[in-house]
């Protein structure tokens, strides 16, 4: 996890990656790394929710299956928080979790990607979400 100081972050948009698998975080981070925004990582649901409240990220890339608070719970919390109205959410799921995708979309996720996903697709979705 690379975490910049909040003073710096104020000036830039933030993207939060929440996944319990370090290899996936590394992949996503490598894929979307850009000068246009700051990338922050969380390794479980609780950490993701804490960082989301602190940083008010523009985008959260949220793994559905995480230990502790699941991705869907974090999604609901974000959507219920008036301070985070502007935060967009992309779900990262396994294909088998179709039910979760449906629940996630209803709960307000903007998009979803199933693992394994194409990094280029991911980048496209991130840029779309950030309206770059």
């Amino acid at each position: 996890m690379s975490l910049h100081t909040p003073t710096e972050l104020d000036l830039q948009r933030t993207v939060l990656i929440a996944d319990d698998e370090s290899s996936i975080r590394l992949l996503v981070h490598a894929t979307i790394e850009s000068d246009d925004y700051t990338v922050v990582e969380a390794s479980d649901g609780a950490q993701a929710w804490t960082l989301a409240q602190q940083l008010k990220p523009s985008l959260v890339l949220l793994d559905v299956q995480m230990p502790g608070q699941s991705g869907l719970e974090v999604l609901r919390s974000i959507k219920a928080d008036p301070n985070l109205k502007a935060t967009r959410v992309i779900l990262l799921t396994s294909k088998a979790q179709e039910r979760d995708i449906e629940v996630g979309l209803i709960a307000g996720a903007d998009f979803y990607l199933t693992k394994p996903f194409s990094p280029l697709d991911l980048l496209t979705r991130v840029e779309e979400a950030l309206e770059l």
């Binding site: 996936i24 294909k95 990094p119």
Partner: peptide, 23 residues
């Protein structure tokens, strides 16, 4: 579902990094 999830995670990394390397 469980197996698929368990398999997809490492697969996602392998496929993803391979694509990054390739592109």
């Amino acid at each position: 579902a469980v197996v698929s999830h368990e398999l997809r995670t490492p697969l996602a990394s392998i496929v993803g990094f391979a694509e990054l390397l390739a592109t």
